[in-house]
């Protein structure tokens, strides 16, 4: 009896929370399928559309130049994630397995760098990009993302690496394996789960980045999805249905990736437990 009561309580409360949490999604979903007339005559966001229309998605896709922007975002995200993971695994390896004078200092630098208010970087980073010709190139945005995420990734991977028993490392060393060999053949295979978790986290963050693409890119041909969405908002300010359609389009990829790889995402957040 008590058991059924507890189960009922669980389902009731969870359903309540989920319903509450889904309201904003439902609002966006309904709005995206409404006609302009319905939006402004009724001016409500909670009722389902009387007539469903796909027109808004078409406008958002074409006017928002989403096709082009999706490709750009995909390139930026893929290369940035790969670059960050590669470089941070190198630095994490050094910080986890070697004793040297500046170890703590360097670790501290990486850790505090990942928590700083990013506005500190805006102006100098912009100017640096322009001077070096990296401005308005995808590679410029990628380099920045890689560098900016290094702090977090290094910290994350190092924390994972120190949990590996050091006997493995020592044994390989005694066998005469070189440092890079130990890194690539022994340590990296062991941190695979951490790398998986990290890559999903990084994927979501970089895909969703807005400010840095705004500051570092200018050509329409190079912009990313989030910029496309804000430009769409600027153009269709009063056409809430089109913007909603654009927002849903922009959200598809990260949401799908999240749903598929959720396990890694959660592991990542838990292991890293710092960024959001």
């Amino acid at each position: 009896m008590k058991k059924t009561f507890r189960a009922t309580l669980f389902y009731v409360l969870c359903t309540l929370i989920v319903v509450l949490w889904m309201v904003p999604f439902v609002v966006a979903f309904f709005t995206a399928f409404k006609t302009m007339d319905e939006i402004f005559m009724l001016r409500n966001f909670w009722s389902p559309p009387k007539t469903w229309t796909f027109e808004n998605f078409k406008i958002a896709w074409i006017e928002g130049r989403m096709a082009r922007y999706f490709i750009n975002t995909a390139i930026v995200t893929a290369v940035s994630v790969a670059g960050t993971l590669l470089l941070s695994s190198l630095s994490a390896y050094a910080l986890a397995w070697y004793e040297f004078k500046l170890r703590t200092t360097i670790l501290m630098i990486f850790v505090s760098g990942m928590l700083i208010p990013f506005q500190m970087l805006l102006i100098p980073v912009y100017r640096f990009s322009v001077v070096t010709g990296l401005y308005d190139t995808l590679i410029g945005v990628i380099l920045f993302h890689v560098a900016f995420q290094l702090g977090f990734c290094t910290f994350f991977l190092r924390n994972f690496m120190v949990t590996i028993p050091s006997s493995l490392f020592d044994a390989a060393r005694i066998d005469g394996a070189g440092a890079f060999r130990i890194y690539s053949k022994i340590i990296m295979p062991l941190v695979k789960p951490a790398v998986a978790a990290l890559s999903i986290l990084e994927f979501t963050w970089i895909w969703n980045d807005y400010l840095w693409s705004l500051i570092l890119l200018q050509s329409d041909a190079k912009k990313t999805v989030t910029i496309g969405l804000t430009t769409l908002q600027g153009q269709w300010i009063s056409s809430w249905n089109v913007i909603a359609a654009g927002a849903l389009l922009a959200a598809t990829v990260p949401v799908i990736v999240f749903l598929i790889f959720q396990r890694y995402f959660i592991q990542g957040l838990t292991l890293g437990s710092i960024k959001g």
């Binding site: 309201v23 709005t31 804000t230 922009a250 959001g276």
Partner: peptide, 18 residues
């Protein structure tokens, strides 16, 4: 968990309707 997968641009837009 789903909101964690969204960009702030999307979150902000949706919430201004809410």
């Amino acid at each position: 968990y789903l909101p964690m997968a969204l960009s702030f641009v999307v979150i902000g837009q949706i919430w201004s309707w809410v």
